[in-house]
Amino acid sequence: MSPSDLVSSHTISVLVDNEPGILARVVGLFSGRGYNIESLTVAETDARENLSRITIVTKGTPMIIEQIKAQLDRLVPVHRVRDLTVEGPHIERELALVKVKGTGERRVEALRLADVFRAKVIDAKTDSFVFEVTGNSDKVQTFVGLMEGLGLVDVGRTGIVAMSRGSEAL
């Protein structure tokens, strides 16, 4: 396999006008052109300028990743497209809410692991907890995996938000 066939994961930040239909444009672009979305988050980030930030994690060969960025950039309401994966060091975070049901030893073990992962207890009943865990996706995934053996009943994940390190803005 030559390097040009190597598939890798990229985290892309997109600054867009916060207007109706913008998410449909972005998602439609990915489905219509057969690109893959591993994670997608979106929320308004600048109310005064009416801007939203979309963070997309996608996978592809270098040529496909380049296409994805060019295609995104060509959408009229898109202001900026940045590939955080290639543009130097960046940080990624994801938040998950994890509901675990159980009593006795399993309950104690869940609480102990939550502590190791710095997950917060945000709801507690005598037979259940809801934990809030934050970190990179691997950490969140590992925590959720561990809870599977301890009475996991529900998970909600935000998907990834990401930012470059240092003083530069998007």
Binding site: M63, E66, A70, D73
Partner: peptide
């Protein structure tokens, strides 16, 4: 004029 036309099919 359209960067998405470049390196799409042919490098």
């Amino acid at each position: 004029i359209d960067p998405s036309s470049i390196n799409k099919n042919v490098r």
